[in-house]
Design a protein around this nucleic acid. Sequence first.
DNA 1: TGAATGTATGAACAACTATTCATATAATCG
DNA 2: CGATTATATGAATAGTTGTTCATACATTCA
Lengths: 120, 120
Amino acid sequence: MEQRVNIPEAIHGGIVRDAKNRMPEEGFCHSLAGFFKVLGDTTRVRILLALALSEMCVADIACLLGMTQSAISHQLRVLRQARLVKARRMGKISLYSLDDEHVESIVAEGAKHLSHGDRR
Amino acid sequence: MEQRVNIPEAIHGGIVRDAKNRMPEEGFCHSLAGFFKVLGDTTRVRILLALALSEMCVADIACLLGMTQSAISHQLRVLRQARLVKARRMGKISLYSLDDEHVESIVAEGAKHLSHGDRR
DNA sequence: TGAATGTATGAACAACTATTCATATAATCG
DNA sequence: CGATTATATGAATAGTTGTTCATACATTCA
């Protein structure tokens, strides 16, 4: 794709030059945003908060959240690909749980920011 | 809007009933997802990482990221509304910076998850 | 084996979003 | 004042995404 947009000159050249050297690479920024994007959906957040309470199968989550099995299954796939949840098969049932302890601390960190905003 | 979707029965009624009592309310889930959604865009992540290095004006960020002033300004508004960045006017220049220390710890927590995934 | 049940998935569509373009606002300086 | 510069913003658009519907896959059981 061709770039014909008009990028402005920096006003503080020194700061920009320095920042250019110290900025993380694009790939990292992209991955980081991709990770947060997964957390940026109400249904997926609710699934994670549910799994923080207990391991559950797809039908249980669907019932709990009042959504279809298909919708939940699609979102579980997104969460699995992001390594936020993991599944184990027990017969015809798939039991989902949080993939690691990180998940809860990230959610907690986000919640902290929300309550911080309320306080002002 | 009418709900005519077919919600499945729970398979493990006890677990679901218990979870229904302990789940955070919808509003909280929605706010939390909304917050992460703001972090779920590469441009906004790059802006935050840039401002973690130094306070900058709009034109500087645009130059640093190789994007138009307009695109940056639009995203800064989103970040401002989410209380992730703040601005102070110095004459005709708007200087942006991270709103609080939380921002960096949230980003760091996300990065931790990414590197965790790499390790397997 | 065939029926029943739980889960996964592809396609389609509606809703949302990030960027661009044009233009408005705001501040400085001659 | 008018010109210039920095930023903000509304409208349009192209690209993305979450849910639904239909259906496939997988497992159990009679």
